[in-house]
């Protein structure tokens, strides 16, 4: 009996041990460290002299910049999510599944390229495209059309980062929606056509309801991803001009690593975790994910 239970314990350690250890090391420990630093006075010299709630108080009302940062973040997340990650991803999926297989596959592959290229290279490409000189790709096109030169990086930085992130983000939804649309039984489309539905009615009454789960999932997943990622923004505009494209996650980075306010950065990061959880919960409720997860994604009958 005792050998059997000790054997079971060994089995559990072997199978669950590595994952648990990794999770502990790279998730639990950093969270604890972050909380500890958030309640300290760690600065550029990395020394902690006392533990304090100053940082949290600053976060909850003492930082006048934070309001505009929140506004920038909201604009960035909502626009990228709605226009590209969901809207354009869905449009691509609908159009490429309507095309013959080979042509559809080609266009999907084209839209996957941004995701496959290394982020630094991708960011560099955008920098060159919008370069404010005569030689930027955008300006060459504008000149060709006889239009005045543009400097997006200075004059429309928000549009720039939404475009740059959206071009990458659209492919995620595109792939998931494509496979979801493909799994809808062909007979449903036939039935709808015979019943008198046109192309748009079929999308509205057959396709969208059938891929509701995937729409919800991509919305939640991508909202959270957009909330915490800042690499492309950092690489292309570095959050500027001034703080115009500094989203919350980038603000955390700038405060901690550019200004050396490690303790305040840690507190800001803690705030982001709370916001992320709140957003996830609200969306989870809104899309009724629990009910969606219980039923089969697509009923074949």
């Amino acid at each position: 009996m005792s050998t059997r239970s000790s054997r079971a314990l060994v089995d559990r350690l072997i199978f669950l041990g590595p994952a648990t250890a990794l999770l502990f090391l790279f998730f639990v420990v950093p969270v604890i460290v972050d909380v500890a630093i958030a309640f300290s006075d760690m600065g550029r010299n990395l020394k902690v002299t006392e533990f304090t709630t100053d940082n949290v108080r600053r976060l909850l009302g003492g930082d006048s910049r934070l309001t505009s940062i929140m506004g920038v973040t909201l604009t960035y997340v909502l626009c990228t999510l709605a226009i590209f990650n969901i809207g354009y991803g869905l449009l691509l999926a609908l159009m490429t599944t309507a095309l013959p297989d080979r042509a559809g596959g080609f266009f999907r592959a084209v839209w996957l390229l941004p995701r496959m290229s290394p982020s630094v290279v991708y960011a560099l490409l955008w920098t060159w495209v919008v370069a404010p000189t005569n030689y930027g790709l955008l300006n060459q096109i504008l000149q060709g059309l006889g239009l005045p030169l543009a400097d997006m990086k200075s004059n429309a930085p928000m549009v720039l980062i939404i475009l740059a992130n959206g071009f990458i983000g659209a492919s995620f939804g595109m792939i998931i929606f494509t496979s979801a649309i493909r799994s809808i039984p062909q007979h449903l489309f036939y039935a709808a056509r015979v019943d008198g539905a046109g192309g748009l009615s079929i999308i509205r009454h057959i396709t969208l309801p059938a891929i509701r789960w995937q729409l919800s999932f991509v919305t939640i997943y991508q909202a959270l991803a957009l909330l915490v990622s800042f690499e492309y923004i950092w690489l292309i505009t570095n959050g500027g001009p001034f703080f115009d494209t500094t989203v919350y996650a980038l603000y955390v980075y700038r405060r901690a690593f550019e200004n050396g306010q490690y303790a305040y950065g840690a507190a800001l990061a803690l705030g982001l975790v709370v916001v992320g959880m709140a957003v996830a919960l609200v969306l989870w409720r809104f899309f009724d994910m629990r009910a969606l997860l219980q039923r089969p994604r697509i009923e074949v009958k």
Binding site: V194, G196, H205, P209
Partner: peptide, 25 residues
């Protein structure tokens, strides 16, 4: 009007909405 082997009823609609569907257009 057509009836398929798989019936091809619209899964997210009630029976009423399924029957009403052709009249929608």
């Amino acid at each position: 009007g057509i009836v398929f082997q798989s019936y091809a009823l619209y899964p997210h609609m009630t029976v009423r909405d399924n029957i009403l569907f052709p009249l929608r257009f």
